[in-house]
């Protein structure tokens, strides 16, 4: 290849794309199963080496307290590795956490093996493994935890409008991936408390899909769940930065509007209703879409009373639904 060829931007570009292609074709990422297998091989190798180079201690020489203490530490560090591998996606943070925990496990496992086998003084690699692996493991784990913190901060940005100040995964609704009614109540009392200290009102919107039972009956409950999920994403996009969206129950969503008066709440409700009215929900791969409609009830309260606010929002929603039903029957029964 001549100098021209090397310096020509097209060639460079091409060579770059070739590099990225080959890189993406064979990503050298170990799967979590392979990592788990690696840990098992490591533990077995240590065991075999100890058995080959040393000799098993006599029954009387074994200190059972040490066995319990060190064996327990090895088992628990192994369980942490399993928890990390089973819950986290592959990536640098997982690798650091994994690496640190594997070193700690190797050290505690060796510690345990030392209690049951006796290595000769001249070949005592076991104690050096113990003393090097443990501090190294703690350093790598600390780096991993620091990276994990940064990752959490990045994820929190993505969870904006879904959670604030307080997290409890038990309270997350599985279908919509937003908080459930318990989470709503906790957030509502936090929001009302802070609004009251600034003597501002708090508003609550409850949004209910019209004819959701009919939709479920026609297209199946799984499509209904998908509609609820996508509707949640849509509502989230149409809320303000400080608002929080939760799933109340069934097809009813709740949005907390902190420090918002009745007029602004009505405005937000109107915007949400417009957004839902223009939402084309596609069933499978079809181009045809279902256009859901929603009814929204709103309530605003200045005093600190979350239960009363929830009750008022429910009543407002039920009243609007009744009005809508009677309007519909009026339209169908009146001659044109």
């Amino acid at each position: 290849m001549t100098l021209f060829h090397i310096c020509h931007p097209c060639v460079m570009l091409r060579s770059h794309s070739v590099w990225t292609e080959t890189h993406s074709e064979s990503p050298k990422v170990l799967s979590n199963h392979q990592k788990g297998l690696g840990v098992a091989i490591l533990a077995l190798t240590q065991l075999l080496l100890c058995l080959m180079t040393g000799e098993v201690k006599l029954w009387a020489d074994i200190d059972w307290m040490d066995i319990v203490g060190e064996g327990g530490a090895a088992i628990f560090s192994l369980s942490w590795i399993v928890l990390i591998l089973s819950s986290r996606p592959t990536g640098p943070v997982t690798n650091y956490l994994m690496g640190g925990l594997v070193l700690i496990f190797a050290s505690t496992w060796q510690d345990f093996l030392d209690e049951v086998t006796h290595l000769p003084e001249t070949l005592n690699w076991g104690s050096s493994l113990e003393s090097i692996a443990m501090p190294l493991g703690i350093i790598v784990l600390t780096i991993g935890l620091y990276q994990w913190r940064n990752e959490q901060l990045a994820i929190r940005q993505q969870l904006l409008k879904r959670e604030r100040l307080f997290r409890n995964h038990h309270l997350i609704d599985w279908v919509t991936q937003v908080g459930g009614a318990d989470y709503l109540r906790r957030q509502l009392s936090i929001a009302m408390q802070s609004a009251q200290s600034h003597s501002q009102p708090t508003s609550l919107l409850l949004l209910d899909l019209d004819d959701f039972a009919h939709f479920n009956h026609r297209y199946g409950a799984r499509e209904g769940d998908r509609l609820l999920h996508e509707l949640g994403e849509l509502l989230m996009l149409n809320l303000r930065r400080n608002d929080i969206l939760c799933r109340y129950a069934g097809d009813r969503y709740a949005a907390i509007l902190p420090s918002t008066d009745a007029r602004s709440a009505a405005l937000v409700a109107e915007q949400l209703q417009l957004a839902v009215a223009h939402f084309a929900f596609h069933l499978g791969e079809q181009a045809d879409a279902y256009f859901p409609r929603a009814t929204i009830g709103a309530a605003t309260l200045s005093q600190m009373n979350p239960t009363a606010l929830e009750e008022r929002a429910n009543r407002s929603l039920e009243w609007k639904k009744r009005c809508r039903d009677s309007f519909n029957t009026l339209q169908t029964t009146e001659p044109c």
Binding site: H170, A181, D182, A213, N216, H217, A221, A249
Partner: peptide, 18 residues
């Protein structure tokens, strides 16, 4: 199934599921 939803899901399924 959390959120006390299980019974209501069964009721709706009994009424609606094909």
């Amino acid at each position: 199934i959390g959120h006390g939803e299980a019974g209501f899901l069964l009721g709706n399924a009994l009424a609606d599921e094909p």
